[in-house]
Amino acid sequence: MTSPRNQFRVAATSAELAQFRRDAWRLYQPVAPVAVEAFGQTWQLRPGLTFTPFANAVRCTAHCAFCSEELQRYDGHQLTAKRLIDDYPAYFARLQAVLRPFRGLPLGLSLSGLEATAEPQWLRELLASLGAAEAAGSVFDEKVLYTNGSGFVLSPDLAPALQDFGLTRLELSRCHDDEAVNQQIMRFNRNQPMRHNAVYAATVRTLHQHVAVKNSCILTREGIASLPDVERYLAWAAGLGVRRVVFRELSRLEGSYLPNRFTEWIEAQRVPIEPLLAAVVPTLEEPRPGWQYAGSTFGYYYYNEHYRWQGTDVIFETSSYPALQAANATGVLQKLILHSDGTLAGDWDPDSHVLSRLDAPAAAPQP
């Protein structure tokens, strides 16, 4: 079974599962690209690629120790995370313009970047603008919001707005079931109530009334690091009504980024996924009690294993930034990103794989 974005297979034997784990994303088979005329030239697009309007209206409400927006490649130029959107009408006019050439082409919508809920008015206008694009012929066959959830505390109207928009799911970041440990990793601003477990729990229960909630937990040595940790976290999440959880290994950098305190923290805190997978299902014939293997997903730079545990869908994920960059280097666009300076690019670096800079809205440096 496959989707426009990845390939799903179920290992039939323990030997095949071992191969999946060994080769991971390298087993992904690229599909034939789609040619699209846009901005004066022909572009090759990976079918099912996602569109990201980079969320950067205000600074993030947390300062996660693993933040990918603080990483800079050796061949990188600038970071979108360092610029703010300060002209909403111009930005949303630009959004409509960059989507126009891709009308009728199914795209995934990935609402990510910094924290989309941190500026509720921007998110409301974003949803309205994207809704207008859909009415004009844009097709978003999957809509996902990646968030730390902070904005829902003071702006609970965002949840029904996302429901009305038709959000497929909300991926809610939480790195530990103990709020003190979670704070050491996610580092919410002091004025953010979401740092407290009681507020988090109440928010999750409210979100359930409007959208599908999937917990996202980054594996770290000081946080969730072992299978008993995983099972404790799952029991805690289930107590909040969460029935889908992903545990992500910190993305493998493999020396492709300039050293800084974030790369140092990532490498020091990395919890490799392989020992956890071996503990869950050493072989298909002898899984850990309570765990059932459901299949594996292969993406162009990531690999997932899917399980069921006491009524909860559990995913373990590993990914490689060098593999992502290698896919970008093929000349086939893997993703579309509208950066906060108005640049439409096929890369997280707004100066790389640029499709268009026309009519770019003004953006202001962060203080």
Rank of each mutant, 00 (worst) to 15 (best):
R270C: 08
Y300W: 08
R252S: 03
W309H: 12
A294P: 00
E267C: 02
Y300K: 06
Q209L: 07
G290R: 07
L276T: 13
E254D: 07
S296D: 05
E305L: 01
E264K: 04
T283R: 11
E264L: 03
A225R: 01
V245Y: 07
V245Q: 10
I224E: 04
V280W: 02
P287E: 11
R190W: 11
A235E: 10
Y302W: 07
V199Y: 08
Q192V: 14
L277K: 03
L253C: 12
E274L: 13
W265T: 04
L258C: 13
P259K: 05
Y257C: 12
E249N: 02
Y303P: 07
G311M: 00
L219F: 04
F247T: 01
H208F: 02
Y200F: 14
Y233K: 08
A237G: 14
A225Y: 00
R288L: 10
W265I: 05
R205A: 09
W236G: 00
G241E: 09
H306R: 15
A212I: 04
R195H: 01
L277F: 03
Y301K: 10
Y302A: 07
T263D: 10
P193K: 11
R261A: 06
R270P: 09
N304R: 15
E264Y: 01
S256P: 10
P289T: 14
E285W: 03
V230I: 13
G311K: 02
V213P: 15
V280G: 02
G241H: 09
L234E: 04
E267I: 05
T203E: 00
A201F: 01
I266S: 01
G299T: 08
H208E: 01
Q209C: 06
T203F: 00
Y293K: 06
W309N: 04
A279P: 15
R205H: 08
I273G: 15
W265F: 12
V245A: 10
V246H: 07
Y293P: 03
W309Q: 05
L219E: 06
T220V: 08
A294H: 09
S296L: 08
V245F: 02
G239S: 12
Q269C: 09
Q292I: 14
Y200E: 03
P259N: 04
V213F: 12
R244W: 15
T263N: 08
Y301M: 09
L284N: 02
L219H: 05
A235C: 10
Q310K: 03
C217F: 05
Q192K: 08
G239T: 10
Y233V: 04
Y307R: 01
V245I: 14
V213L: 09
P287Q: 06
W291G: 09
I224H: 07
